[in-house]
Amino acid sequence: MWKFLHRLSSLKYFYEWSGKWVPWLLGLTAVLMLVGLYWGLLVAPADYQQGESYRIIYVHVPSAWMSMFVYVVMAGAGFVAIVWRTKLSEIVVSECAIIGATFTALALVTGMLWGKPTWGTYWQWDARMTSELILLFLYFGIIAVHSVIEEPRTAARVASILAIIGVINIPIIHYSVTWWSSLHQPNMQLISKTPSVHPSMLYPLLVMATAFQFYFVSLLLIRMRNAILYRERITNWVKNSLARD
């Protein structure tokens, strides 16, 4: 078991197997994305209150979910990086930060674009929006640590600590609409006998959310492979595998 985990965490081994997975993951992402877009934009009915503009849900909600999910993955990898000091988990921390920041920015921008026609404003300093903005700054902080500290292993340690501390913001984002009065709607009840989103609108949302998940895994693997190539550029296995290509 430990031997297997150790082998899995070796950069060379990871580089080899991830290379086989990436094309399939990207293909699956594209298929899910196309199905989700077609279903959400053309098949799903309009909403009884908001009409057509509710369709922003299909890009806003998956982005927002991913912004939090990626953070938890990053903090988990940060924990592993601190306790076991594996290089692979350090790479996960640094690469997740940029992907997570993108999802967070998308959640904020699409939320603003949804807010203007529905609420009547792009922005309010309510608890949900403020805590999501703090999440973006946390990601920026972790990206900044990596670019300021030149030694990658020291940078990874500091970034991991910051990532773990920031986890406290995740439950705050989730419960912000329950704990405090806000302009943002309450959390959707999806796991219930009577979900608050009608099935005809819920299924395309779940397809889009899955597509975003696959996009994240694909891009994470691609970015990690780049990071490995760069970190190991002076080693023999990289030079040999290039000579083979």
Binding site: P45, D47, T118, M188, Q189, H198
Partner: peptide, 18 residues
């Protein structure tokens, strides 16, 4: 000076609402 609309977490087609 400003009035903003809130909406809830329920989404459904008009027929279902009716």
């Amino acid at each position: 000076q400003e009035v903003l609309a809130k909406h809830d977490e329920n989404y459904m087609p008009p027929e279902v609402a009716a």
